[in-house]
Computed example of a mutant assay.
Amino acid sequence: MTERSFSEWLREQCEPEWTAVVTHPFAMAITTGTTAGDDMRRYLEQDFQFVDSFTALLGAAVASADTFEARVPYGKFLGQVATTEEKTYFHRALAELGGRTDVPLEPVTVAFRQLMDEVRARQDYLLIAAVLCVAEWCYLGWASRAQEPLPESFVHREWIELHEGADFRGWVAFLRGELDRLGVGLDEARRHEVLGVFRRAVELERAFFDMATG
């Protein structure tokens, strides 16, 4: 390993795929409020299908984390996902777009849920943190590119706001910090095991954006 952090090393190993995610044309269209209505509806309908698996993955992080100090942020974020604005956003946005919460799963949605469920079932905290970090860091990556003024439509504006700002940046910094802390002293085989999961999650993020415009 070089002097750069483990999380940064993981991200660098996933180029150019990582940059393709955070600058994806569909993501950039969200930041400008110019996505086609059907594309945004399809995207949010499928993204909603992750709520249960993502919530279960957060719960697994609480259970498998190696310190009390690590468990607390996961528990706090878990409560936010389950009870606050992100959950209500989906229902309001899908109602606005004429979408539904009960839709057939696209293949990429199935594959991403399987990845979440696989690392959750293993109760391997480092791999759980890797999948969570990709999901959140990627979204901060594109949302932070939005320029003021944000789109007038709440469907776009609130989705950006949910993935940008001091609280969300702090959450991503925590996830990266956990990878950095746990990555110290890993042998080469373990580093590449984590990289394999991290890279798979990045590939799925790109495929998910591709699906939205497919």
Rank of each mutant, 00 (worst) to 15 (best):
C138G: 01
G214F: 02
A93G: 00
D102L: 13
M116D: 00
L78C: 11
L97T: 02
A65E: 10
V194Y: 04
R113V: 15
A65G: 12
G177V: 10
I30E: 00
T101K: 11
F50N: 02
Q13G: 10
P16G: 08
V110H: 15
Q123I: 06
W171P: 00
F209I: 15
A29K: 06
L105S: 08
A95R: 14
F77P: 00
R145H: 04
V172C: 08
G177R: 15
E96D: 14
V119K: 08
A93P: 00
V108K: 01
A20N: 14
P149M: 09
L195S: 15
V72P: 07
F154G: 04
F26S: 06
E69S: 12
V103C: 05
G59Q: 09
A207R: 14
G196A: 08
M1C: 09
E148N: 10
G170T: 06
W142G: 00
A135C: 06
D47M: 06
P73I: 02
M28Q: 11
P107C: 05
Q147F: 07
R206T: 13
R11A: 05
P25Q: 07
F68L: 12
M211E: 04
A207V: 09
A56Q: 10
F54V: 04
T84G: 14
E85M: 13
E161D: 10
L58R: 01
V184E: 07
Y74L: 03
